[in-house]
Design a protein around this nucleic acid. Structure first.
Lengths: 199, 199, 199, 199
DNA sequence: GATGAATGAGGCTTCATTCAT
DNA sequence: TATGAATGAAGCCTCATTCAT
């Protein structure tokens, strides 16, 4: 997977890096192709050699990052034996990614939602893979009796994803630091035991 | 409710209605001022008599809707005696709003996030009020011993808000129906008891 | 002359004052009718009750001020017996006006030049009267033999007017103080004796 | 002279020429970007590839012309041996420029004054250079004892510049012919000897 | 693989002005 | 005398995109 970028033309690489760089500071809409080209040190025209349009560039950047993220999470989960460990690994690693890879977080949490054609892009495939990983854990836990079985697994999945995203969102929006262990820990606690008084 | 908007110039009202109407079908960016004016039956210039710019119009539309939403939720919560009832009311009513007021949901869940100046707008004040309502319930529950006290109340609040939003998001994005009672019910269950095997 | 503004409707007065006030700080083009109305405390519509259009307002403001200026200069000149005294009075008083009445100076030195219809306005009549006053002095001086006679009186007039205006211009443009006596004195010296080595 | 503008993109050249052409007949404000583009035979968008905005275009046109003017004046002055010759050359050449280069005259005498950001533009640098040339002559004359020394050199400079400009202004405003030798000659006479009766 | 000049569509916004009340 | 809602024309400018070299 994730071909080691062998043979990638330098122009293409520079363009993708330029967008990533610019998105550290600005939203996608605020970034112009002229700016991307300037930062990349190429001409605007070259962008269209490698990318169908400006959004395609965004999607490809996202895809590349997302592949790395998925590998990371999978690797981390594979180390865990029990089901709660794997769930914790998924959550913790996701939060860690949002905390450290701000551009990735920006794109996935903010930019992409208002772009209708995202959901037919290859990058969206990554979202499905990612989402399916969590769903897999949940199904497994239900099957094994470790998790309660009276819930719709997709609802449950969305609840978890939403909880993760929202706790990270403000950090991303306002460039605030994120307490990874704290967020992940509290989330796991709520999910395991609920908010009723600890018994 | 919804103050009879005394003295509001008709043009202003028509413009706001036009945007709401158009946003049933398209994203904010895809809507042009020309289109708004045409649907409202006024000239483009009039928009700028009442609104600083196109985004200001969006924020004012959102604010107006949000005020109604807040009133609705508050009214509903005031009917409940116990703390879990109030929590349930908040969640259930929020989901109901997302399910029925698609434009409101669109704006708050999707459009607004990529607009940096939203967070300095008056409409954002509504978000804070709304968010504070939930936080109030949580604090109350912690103080009374009904909720566990080993969690950061703001984390908890964000977990809940995220869970609500995400479960509604896909319905909003793809114009799917939303099973209000189902979503709210499952969410409350998770929150109360966690996903551990039902005892 | 210059009717003591008897019976002038208050709205009209307020509008003219508003423009004068605003022109202390901004150029005419940068000032909008909306701003004028706001400062005057009237509605935009009222402006068009009293003035044909925005430029007409400018011209009437200028005319009113110019009438005062002409009276001042004339009064001052009438005190002088000899021809050089009158010339000095004209120059000195003009510089004094530019130094103290910045709005007047702004309009006459800057704004009005790019407005083609100014030269058919009543305010332009004031310019002619003013200009004629200087020309009168010069003609008188030539006739009496006090001034050299080998020059075209209109060229001479323009040379003097230009010298006055330009020495004041930068003060007006950049809100700098103006050394009235200095400017007028040096000007008179040059005009009387030239720049050849003092004999 | 007038560097062969090597490598200047043709579009850029055509745009600048178009503005010069249009300003023969109309004021800057009356000229629209659409008109400029039409006359240049390019699209409006291209204007903004080469010029920050419409005013920037004006300033660059002015700068280009002003550079030529300065070269002309300097060349002419360099031919003169004595100080009065150089002063005369400066005045005469300036008047000649105003008489023949109407667009240049228009811009410098009329348009530019009401544009606040002109004074921070590169074109304004030319004004300073030009103005400094005259001041240099005056300082030289004072140092050598050819000119009287009891005057502030900058006042004197402004008096001369104003006299030149004003005598040319009406010609420029009303498209009248200008008697170059006459204007320059009379001006020099006044300046040398004053208006006192010829001795 | 890369350039860079040029396009073109249309977006947002401004503002003087009018008119019914 | 004054209001204020509404107009309408057009202006400036942006920016993704193309194409010949």
């Amino acid at each position: 997977m994730a071909v080691p970028s062998r043979k990638q033309p330098p122009g293409r690489i520079k363009i993708m890096q330029a967008l990533r760089l610019l998105m550290e500071e600005q939203g996608f809409d605020a970034i112009t192709t002229a700016e991307i080209a300037r930062v990349a040190g190429v001409t605007e025209g070259l962008i269209y050699k490698y990318f169908k349009d400006k959004r395609d560039l965004l999607y490809q950047v996202l895809e590349e990052m997302f592949e790395g993220v998925i590998l990371r999470i999978r690797a981390r989960m594979d180390l865990e034996k029990d089901i709660f460990g794997r769930l914790h690994a998924f959550i913790d690693e996701t939060v860690a990614v949002y905390a450290t890879q701000r551009v990735f977080a920006r794109i996935i949490l903010i930019e992409v939602r208002s772009l209708p054609d995202f959901f037919t892009s290859r990058a969206y495939g990554c979202v499905r893979v990612y989402s399916r990983m969590l769903q897999g854990v949940l199904e497994e836990g239900m099957a094994s009796g470790d998790f309660r079985q009276d819930l719709d697994v997709r609802f449950l999945r969305d609840i978890l994803l939403g909880a993760i995203e929202h706790t990270c969102l403000w950090g991303v929006l306002f460039h605030r630091e994120l307490d990874v262990a704290g967020v992940a820990g509290q989330l796991i606690t709520v999910v395991r035991e609920g908010i009723g008084p600890s018994t």
